[in-house]
Design a binder for these strands. Structure first.
Ligand code: FES
Ligand code: FES
Lengths: 144, 144
DNA sequence: GTTAATTCGGATAAAATTATCCTATTTATA
DNA sequence: TATAAATAGGATAATTTTATCCGAATTAAC
């Protein structure tokens, strides 16, 4: 469904949100440990999210990654997925036709479109705050 | 969502179904041409489907691939997806946790599970006959 | 039997994804 | 200013996925 890069990106963003919620900042090292991901690879993904203005980074000693507190509730999962995996999951044909098009539909177009739309809605209606609070309260988990 | 191998496998199976519906048999060459897929790679995938008993192959001159007519309506998309991509899409955690588990859910478990279940139902409720008939009547397409 | 048309299967190659390494740059603190 | 802690980014490697190639085996038709 999502690439590994995207999964790491989602988990990292959620973890950063939990820390940013308390007004703190977190290092790559801690992120990778907490989401159980390869550090250097995670670094690339975080750089990507910084370029997409989804998270912020601060260089140098005592630096790290953060999300401005007032933005945590405005960042939707769809933005993260889109930044890393692109929009194929929202717009692409399930069977790989060049374009998904009502005028020239693949055999599973109708059925697939329904699933795709539900996924899209889910990602657009879920923001980092909701998920971060569940992590903080121990209701959900980012590793194992 | 689905791997390319799986997309080719689905399209090939649907195409074979349209031909088998008329009691004929079809060669790899024609299949690859009609679904616009690389021939040798498609061969591997078809071999896999044969091993999984989803389609039948006949070697030698005038050989090819076919699906017994009375089985066309009994083959569900879920069987094909499962044979090629495995069951991760039905059972796996959307964020890549080792197991998807109510006792130890990832942050998007509830939302993701709903999408996954819809996809599963869709694949389990769609059989090759329905799709083959749409291709035959020109309502849907396998390439471009 | 010979030939031609096929699938089967092993080996290999190419491309994409995932992962690692190393150096440069930045910045707070001492 | 020196040092240490951190991100940035380029180069490279490992792995997985996708794709190609070729010879072996099978089978219908002549
Ligand atoms: S054309 Fe295939 S999903 Fe729309
Ligand atoms: S634990 Fe992640 S989807 Fe169930």
């Amino acid at each position: 469904m999502f690439s590994k890069a995207c999964q790491y990106g989602l988990k990292a963003s959620i973890y950063i949100a939990t820390i940013s919620y308390d007004g703190k900042r977190v290092s790559l090292k801690e992120i990778a440990k907490e989401i159980d991901s390869p550090e250097a690879f995670t670094a690339k993904i975080l750089q990507d999210l910084v370029r997409h203005n989804i998270i912020k980074s601060v260089k140098g000693a005592y630096g790290g990654f953060e999300i401005p507190k007032n933005e945590i509730s405005t960042i939707k999962l769809s933005q993260i997925v889109n930044a890393i995996d692109g929009d194929n999951i929202y717009r692409g044909c399930g069977l790989g036709l060049h374009v998904c098009d009502e005028e020239h539909p693949c055999p599973v177009h109708d059925q697939f479109k329904a699933v795709r739309t539900q996924l899209k809605n889910m990602l657009e209606n879920t923001n980092l705050e909701q998920l971060a609070l569940d992590i903080k309260s121990g209701v959900s988990f980012l590793k194992l």
